[in-house]
Amino acid sequence: MTPDHLVALLCPPLHNPRRRRGGNMAPEKSATVPQFLRGAELVKQGAEARVYRTQFLGRPTIVKERFSKRYRHVALDEKLTRRRTVQEVRSILRCRRAGIPAPAVYFVDYTSHCIFLEEILRSSTVRDHIASTQQSASCTVQELDRDQDRELVQEQELEQLAQQVGQILAKMHDEDVIHGDLTTSNMLLRRSPEDRGSDLVLIDFGLSYISALPEDKGVDLYVLEKAFLSTHPHTEALFQKLLKSYSASSKKSSAVLKKLDEVRLRGRKRSMVG
């Protein structure tokens, strides 16, 4: 039985006269997903993807839709978009297998380059969390002792967070997953249901790949370091805490951190002629 035949059988015109005949199904392609997304809530318009919030199979779901970039050669664009969609879901599964929290994948449409992911409820980005903690800390600088205590608590809280980030990245690198785009926006802090602590969830694996090379892991940390320090001013000490925790948690950290030093130096030593 052909698929068209089957659809016709399942939904005979008798039951639903508005239904198109099976023969008209083929050209429909996968415009269905983009069409569906028009009714969804757009949460973020990124450089290469739009992120929507919606219900899918009755569950709260995030849809990441990669769109084509017209400035790129068609062949390159198609290849990159497809590759990044595939890499993203592969790395997510690899992380989850190792017990590293990442959103579950519900559905992938490779023709419209859409990934349907579990929505991480009760969460905020690490970026927002650090920013708001820093802000409320600086507000209290000239206030009472009580507030200084609060500032101290907030500082400890951030240090604990940095430690958590270091641990999770160590675990990820030990699985040979290179994230490729580590920023504090690509990590979510998820509060547990009864508000007993919180855990980290990694997202946005579009530039990720698998590699065991310390060089690749070092560059991964270098990318994070730059993003971290440029997004959050005056956090050099906090980032050091993160690296310390990474170093304590990863089995292969010494080679990676050596590479990180090398990559940093490369930036400063590059000849820069011209």
Binding site: R96, G99, P101, A104, Y106, F107, V108
Partner: peptide, 25 residues
Amino acid sequence: VAPQEETCGTLLDAVVCRMAIKDVM
């Protein structure tokens, strides 16, 4: 599904993820 995977999500999530991704694994 190894026990560690169920520390970061449910068995259902683990199963569904593999179903969704199997064509590119």
